[in-house]
Design a protein around this nucleic acid. Structure first.
Lengths: 359, 359
DNA sequence: TGATTTATGTGAAAATTATCCTATAGTATC
DNA sequence: GATACTATAGGATAATTTTCACATAAATCA
């Protein structure tokens, strides 16, 4: 418990402060309350500290990061896997991590947002990982309060994409594109996208879908349901599609829970998967739980979490470096929920089964 | 931001300390560093504080609880729903909540456990909710460090059940019993329990199962797999059952993810659910995701979370009260994964369908 | 039973953090 | 372009927490 540097007379803030020719208050601010210190002075203090206090990294009471999930009613397994990856990487580097959820309105001006106390205490939490639905006012608030953060780019709503901070993306645009290409390759032409296009991650997946459709000379069509409940989005999106009598041979759901809703909607209407309609998902969270198992796009949430921690620890180690931007690729996962369109066309042209389809 | 008690001269630790005839240090310890203060003295200080500082509850910097999930590799949806309920109740009462996960060995003596820094800082976290797999050494550690806590009783490993602290239970024993009675009522006699009996929540569910079996004059039998992965437990437990050629008409899985593994194991062997074998789960986490939908025991994780917070806020408000113990009931949920045994016997005795069963 | 250790509880003093105040630089306004 | 207004940075000082040392109670051992 005692210092192992046997005789070394104690090195405290006071010593650091005198060495750096600043007041103790300023030294304290540099080493803990990250706020309001001129970068130049900070550097002087840090240099002085480095000379005196070899074990600088140990002197802080708490080495912890906060993982803030905003505006999500339930903790999706996708998020919990990001958390897992982040936690693991933290633990491996001797950091603690706390998870918080937080709800706020995107309209509230940043000054009036009141963040959880814990993330504002620099002596407790040294930086924040933003993984929920993140609006610009939240980022503003962090900027103004001088709290370091990384953000999951896929979930940033509204704001311009030229964030002046570290960002990690999952390449779900590519995922949507790959999946759509696969469906087109199976002969599908009447492919519909189901999701909630107001939410950025759905919008991104749809963007990839759109690209693939256009590159094949097709028009991308979507059934967007304005809900926060993924399963509902899938269910209602599917029902509305069928009710309108749209011709459809394949459905791309914006994520796996949405695909679950699609399954239910189709079963409700007596349609079989994949015999009558092919279904594809995105994010590979519950693909193997569903029956038939879901062809989907695997993302790497643990990797995302790890990457975010890596960036932020880096930034803590040397503040002032340029904002970093990292994109994690996705992987196509083939399972049992899609089949070539030829088969279902035969079914459709076969009078005896036609009634099953419209039942 | 300023105090609304306009002219009132500032009331600080110093004032409270003089009023209570103790040193500022002691006053500080009472109001924050909960440690090592004689209960009598604490009371004196609190009384003195109550007289001077009307807004005692506001003067602490951080009103936050920690939700500690120990030794669970993944965050189950069951836990995340407990968290949700706890969070909601916290928010409604103006408290923040932070979530942490923590891994430790049950063998480590409590002195050598090193808890996450954050939970040890009384100025940050005022009490802890223990929801993961909790061993006695962890509880010891909390006791000795004077950290207030509530614990989810279902998950306490090993120790005697006469914990000297607040405990909340989910009545999964009753759940296992009700479910087994239902299966027996359907005519099943060859019912097997699948789980990992080393883990207390499985053991509790099995206990209920055993009671129901004995009350019907039957012997409870189980296939226990020593794994932490629920789906694996179900899959391997089922395969081993079938490989041994045991006669079985119904399987009770210790929780829903385990039932998912059971589904896979049965499908692998060409058996249909519920036509050939009935399957029941416990905890209603993914019962509707599975196909056919799972008959299971609904628990009320949100309620558990809420209840735990309620107890602990109570204890913070008046420490020194007797330990509380609360049990939340469970509810039987009938879905599509069970059917009367007579039906399947008829199927079995009907030659024409026999081949489907063994196909 | 007495002696030695160990654990606990407290105040004094040291260390650290928070608050308040002032100086300066940048904006906005007339 | 001068004046007032803001926002920021940093020091002085007050408030609070932590550490250290010591006293006392409980436990262990000869």
């Amino acid at each position: 418990m005692k210092t192992t540097h046997s005789q070394k007379s104690k090195v405290g803030l006071r010593e650091i402060a005198t060495a750096a020719h600043v007041s103790v208050a300023t030294a304290s601010r540099v080493l803990n309350g990250n706020n309001r210190v001129d970068p130049a002075i900070r550097k002087v203090v840090l240099d002085a500290a480095a000379k005196l206090d070899i074990d600088l990294s140990q002197r802080n009471k708490t080495k912890a990061l906060a993982f803030l999930v905003s505006n999500r009613a339930v903790l999706h397994s996708f998020h919990s896997r990001i958390l897992l990856g982040a936690e693991e990487y933290c633990a491996a580097h001797g950091w603690d991590m706390v998870f918080l959820s937080f709800n706020y309105s995107p309209q509230t001006p940043w000054k009036e947002l009141h963040l959880p106390q814990v993330v504002q205490r620099h002596d407790v939490v040294r930086a924040v990982i933003l993984a929920g639905t993140t609006s610009m006012n939240l980022l503003e608030s962090f900027n103004h309060k001088g709290i370091a953060y990384v953000v999951l780019g896929n979930n940033v709503i509204g704001g311009p994409q030229d964030l002046r901070s570290d960002v990690v993306f999952s390449d779900d645009i590519q995922g949507g594109q790959d999946m759509t290409r696969y469906l087109i390759g199976l002969g599908h032409r009447d492919i519909w996208f189901i999701g909630n296009l107001r939410l950025p991650w759905f919008a991104r997946c749809f963007e990839g879908h759109r690209r693939a459709m256009e590159e094949a000379g097709l028009v991308a069509r979507s059934s967007s349901i304005d809900s926060e409940d993924d399963t509902n989005i899938g269910y209602l999106g599917t029902k509305s599609l069928l009710a309108r009598g749209e011709s459809v041979t394949a459905i791309l759901a914006g994520n796996d829970p949405t695909a679950h809703g699609v399954y239910r909607g189709l079963r409700d209407s007596g349609l079989r998967i994949p015999d009558d309609i092919s279904v594809a998902g995105c994010d590979d969270t519950i693909g193997t739980l569903l029956y038939p198992s879901l062809t989907t796009t695997r993302e790497f949430p643990e990797q995302l979490g790890k990457q975010m921690v890596e960036l932020i620890l880096n930034r803590i180690a040397n503040p002032g470096q340029e904002p970093q931007r990292v994109t994690i690729p996705t992987e196509f996962i083939k399972r049992d929920s899609c089949r070539p369109v030829l088969a279902s066309r035969e079914v459709l042209s076969d009078g005896s089964l036609q009634k099953v389809v419209t039942a």
